[in-house]
Structure formats: C-alpha cells, structure tokens
Write a protein that binds this DNA or RNA. Structure first.
Lengths: 135, 135, 135, 135
DNA sequence: TTTT
DNA sequence: TTTT
C-alpha cells in the first residue's frame, strides 16, 4: 500500500545498461550503504541492487561511475524465479524512480558525443534476451 | 550512509517470536505490500520479510496478527550465507525500528496475562539455536 | 535536491476542495500526527497542513473525512507572502503526491452520485479567487 | 503516528549553536532544497529550518558550513506562540535525528582543538535565554 | 481553530 | 534574509 526507500551510498562498480527486445533502456548497479554502527569488526555495509528504467536508466548510465556517492529513491521489489535445479530463488531489488548524483565527475563536463553511447553503429539499440531482464 | 524504508501493508501470517541463546527476543513476519499498479493481471504485491528485536519484538508478537494493516519503518539489510550445496545465498530483510499498528484487534483490549506469553512455564524464555537467527 | 515526507495521522476536520480560475482542483486538510512521546502533559501532536492537486484532490475530497486515519507522501514546501501590515509571513505545507486511506468509511460504499459533487448545478466547477489558492 | 522527513540540500549560512540554561546544546541551520522543476523562472528552492539537539548539535556546529551539501533525517514539528501584537504565529521546523555530511570540508581534517569550541574560556557552555530556544 |  |  505504501513502499518507499531512500538510500545514500556509493556504487560498487560502473552501472550496466541494457535494452529490452522492445527497446526500453534499463540500468542496474549496486549501492554500498555503510551501516551507522560496526558489528565486531565484521561486515559493515549493505550491498543493495538498484534497477532503473527508460530515461532515468540512460541518465544513470551516462553520469554514474564506480565509487560515486549517490542518493536513490524508490520501492522494494521482490521477485522470484525457478532456478535450473527447480528451486525457487528470491531476488530483492530497489526499483528507483529518482536518482541524485551527489558528486560530479569529469564525465559530467563531457559533451554527449564523447560519452559511451547506448546505440549500435546503425543507430539501433543493443538488444538483450528476455532472461537478461532485471524483472 | 543513509538507509531508510517505510512500508504499509498486511501481515501474510501471524508473527513468529524466538529468543536467542542469550535471551534476546526477535520477531519476524512478512508484509504484503500491494503495488499501486497491475502488471497484466499477474502478481501485484511484494512480500517483504521484516525483523524486529528486543522490546519491539515482544510488542509485535503480542499485538500483530495475520491480515492486520501495519506500518513499518526501518532499514534494508542484506546478509548472505553458504547453503549446504556450498552456494552463497543472499537474504534481504527490513530491520524495523518502528512499527505502527493501524488496526486494533480484540487482543488489544486483553490484559497482559491473557496474551500469549513468550516464556516457558518456569519463566525462562524459549531458547533457539544460533542458525535460527534472522541475522 | 531531495525532499521527501511520509506522514500517518488523522484529519482534524473534513477536507476542503476548491477550484482555481483555470479549473484545477485543489484539496487541503490538516493531519494530526501524534508524537511518539509526551512533553510534560503538554501538546502532543503536530498539526500539518496538506495540499493536493488535480485527480488526487478530487479523490481526497470524496473519500476523506474528519478523524480518518490517513497516510500522506509528499514534499515540504515553504512559501511566503506579505501580509496587510507589510510583514513577510512564511507558510509551510506538505504537497502530497500519494495519499492512502487507512480506514474505510461508509461513504466508500456510496455510489458516485450520492457523494458531494464538486460541480455546480450547471456542471461547471465552483471557481475560487486567486488569493484563495493554497500556493 | 508516523512522521518522517528526508532532505538533501545545501546550508544557506553557517550553522548557529546555542546552549539552553540547563546546558543542552542546540544547533539550527537552514537547508536550501532545490525543487526538481522550475516554476516560470520564479523561486525554485524551499528553505527549510533544521533543529538539532545534544551530541548531534555539537557535531553539526563543528562540521557544517554554508553551502555544504547535507542530508537530514527527522520529523516535522509545528509549534506556535503569541507574538507581541497578540497574534498566534506558527513555526514549522524539521527536528533532525540523523545528519549526513555529503561533502568534506578542509575543517574535517583539523584536530579538535583547532575547531571552534562551544565552550567559554572557563569551560562553561555559553548560556542562552529561554526565548532563544528553537522550541 | 485541531484528530483517536 | 537564503545554497550550488
């Protein structure tokens, strides 16, 4: 009925953009959110998978980079599928509807043509198979 | 760095309370959060596991019931463990620090002694094994 | 850069709907949000003005009532104006983009025609003067 | 019943710390939160007053500066008082319980002794009058 | 001016 | 009275 998440963290690696067969852009990345406390020197961050779609996906692919401090607003989504051993696997992701770049990169000054362009030489987006879809 | 979740949904079943070997109460339940849109008649809710600790765990065990509309505030936690086939399994839960009961049950009128008491007849809490721990 | 508010509380009175001269619906109401603690028996709630627009405004006018438990998602807006003594007055409101009715009223069972209709007998919305605008 | 605010913005000026007569630190500042849209070239930010208390107040006074990008978590508080003309004035503030410094200043590298110390030469905190209190 |  |  209400499902709202707000995160601030750093990308664990460069974002990955793909296109659905119908040409919809989707970009995924993982946010490392440091916990406000230490658990006996053990793991102290949560690694949260983020999924973006369409225009937001393109912007994220263009402006985000590994290590960049980033704010994400969205909702928790839980999906499940059957793996090749017939066992049900649950996947939890944050579907973002608002992403804020809290650190500017050099890339931000680049012109569009200098950026990695999500299109093939013939102008068509790179297709991905259905089972590559984040949901 | 910041990790905040706010959910409103209904319990899919009665909450389950356990005690750690050191006597700390922990209650878990699952919230069904209806999505604000339908995806071609398919699944239309996210089932999100909630974990509470200590005093909050006891209150949740006493006052929550299957189907009850409930608000939860907390943070996303991702933990992983190795399963018996040696594969790493990821578990995502919301660790709640604030739970609001949006519907009063008949139980809410009961006196404490009439409620299900999380103690054994001898007054000691029911112990649970370490690997029963939600995290 | 990011501005997000989530509230659960009860309406202090029935919501008020108006129309701008250009025919846009806007509904305002106040949420009483009980504080989680008591300050020496003194005031123990915050009374927060909520503003909704367009379709959401119409739904709120139709379904909300004084006393009804309600969840609101939105952003804080601070506007200021000069009063008739030439002093600047600051007004803080929550502009809602998502409202959840946590209690169903009898009205919810009523058909549309039985509800208070925001239109005049001739079908035109009731106009309001510019200075009636919530912002 | 639930009252949660999350903001990201920049300080409009240096924070101001005071002490209550009983020695409790309180620091206030204003966050400029740019709106995600432009309203015909008009005002495009909300200026939101933030109040912090105790340890958090001291940390904010030590580490925040005008212009610094900052995340704030807290709750909306509405208080009112009678002004000298006998009119009731309403004040809305965000009482923060979590503040994240999203930009490091040079000051952050300084040792504690180099920072502005909130104590007088004799070690006593600077007292403030009751009506200086933010609430 | 305030809700349960 | 406002920040980049």
């Amino acid at each position: 009925m209400l499902n709202r998440v707000i995160l601030i963290g750093r990308l664990t690696r460069d974002p990955e953009m793909k296109y659905t067969p119908t040409g919809i852009a989707t970009t995924t990345f993982t946010l490392a959110c440091d916990r406000p406390f230490q658990t006996n020197g053990q793991k102290e961050a949560d690694f949260i998978p983020i999924v973006t779609w369409r225009q937001l996906a393109e912007t994220c692919a263009n402006y985000l980079k590994k290590g960049r401090l980033t704010a994400v607003e969205g909702r928790i989504q839980v999906r499940s599928y059957e793996n090749n051993e017939g066992k049900r696997v649950y996947v939890t992701e944050v579907i973002a509807d608002n992403v804020r770049f809290l650190e500017r990169g050099e890339q931000q000054e680049q012109s569009r043509s200098e950026r990695n362009d999500p299109f093939q030489d013939d102008g068509r987006p790179i297709e991905i198979k259905e089972d590559d879809l984040p949901f």
